[in-house]
Computed example of a mutant assay.
Amino acid sequence: MYAKPILVVVAAATLASNGTAAPAPVIPESKGIYRLPFADGTEVSVFDDAATHRPVGAIDLVGEPREGKVHRVVAAAKGTVMAIEDSYSEQQSGRAASLCRNNYLWLAHPNGEWTLYGHMATGTTRGKAGLKVGAKVKAGQYLGDEGAVGCAMLSHVHFEVAVPQAKDPIDKGGFLNANDERQRMRIPRFCAVPDHQLRKDAHYTASACT
């Protein structure tokens, strides 16, 4: 049941170097089952799911309502903080991802998978949450506030599950190394969600896994 491969359907506009349609990457499901990375009771909408996100495999989650409320981001499972960047403040929608300065936090989990929380508000991870690299966190523990820092059209959390390479797992921008074919990605599975899979435009309520 674990690590069942999923064919992520990619639009035909994705082309190989010879101009033909490139095959869709086959990305396995995550070993872990994770909670939605927002505080309990938060209504969460899916802006992009693992199939519609570009590049594929990641998920963009939005706390609702979208205006007038600060949404708290929490750990999707217990883990160890591996990397933090929360010093940036500029929203840079429209730039290539490699040119954007994103805020992010990576957690490593006991099952060997890592989770990424991207675009969080300036200073909320080191400051409000008081976290540093090497800190141990529990599932549901506060990590920072939802934001729109870096390559972001709107305030949201960019969420990924991955199995990084052991040496030099991420680059200075927080991107996975050795992931050109999305081979490090895993399709996130979530508790309290039908089939454990999130769907674009659907709404869910964040809660602890039981």
Rank of each mutant, 00 (worst) to 15 (best):
A3Y: 02
A3P: 01
K4D: 13
I6S: 08
L7V: 12
V9N: 15
V10Y: 04
A11P: 12
A11F: 11
A13E: 11
L15H: 09
A16V: 04
S17E: 11
G19R: 02
T20I: 04
A22W: 05
A22S: 11
E29R: 11
S30C: 08
S30W: 06
K31P: 01
K31E: 09
I33C: 03
Y34Q: 12
R35E: 01
R35C: 00
G41K: 07
T42Y: 03
E43P: 00
S45N: 03
S45H: 01
S45T: 04
D48I: 04
T52Q: 04
R54Q: 14
G57H: 04
G57M: 04
V62G: 14
E64F: 00
R66G: 01
E67G: 00
K69S: 13
K69D: 14
H71F: 00
H71M: 02
R72Q: 15
A77R: 10
K78I: 09
M82S: 12
D86R: 00
Q92S: 01
Q92V: 00
R95L: 10
A96V: 03
A96H: 05
A97Y: 02
S98W: 01
L99F: 06
L99K: 10
N102G: 10
Y104F: 05
Y104N: 08
L105S: 13
L105C: 10
L107M: 02
H109C: 10
H109I: 09
E113I: 08
T115S: 13
L116A: 15
A121D: 15
A121N: 15
A121W: 11
A121G: 14
G127V: 03
K128T: 13
K128P: 07
A129L: 12
V133S: 12
G134E: 14
K138G: 03
A139N: 08
G140Q: 09
L143K: 02
G144R: 09
G144F: 05
G144P: 05
D145C: 11
G147N: 12
A148V: 06
V149W: 05
G150S: 07
C151I: 00
A152G: 15
S155N: 09
V157S: 06
H158D: 01
A162I: 09
V163K: 07
V163M: 06
V163G: 07
D168L: 03
I170W: 02
D171C: 06
K172N: 05
K172Y: 01
G174D: 08
F175N: 14
N177H: 13
A178G: 12
A178L: 10
N179G: 15
E181K: 06
R184E: 13
M185F: 02
I187K: 14
I187M: 12
F190Y: 14
F190P: 12
A192H: 05
A192Q: 07
V193P: 06
H196P: 05
L198I: 12
R199S: 07
H203L: 11
H203A: 15
Y204A: 07
A206E: 15
C209L: 04
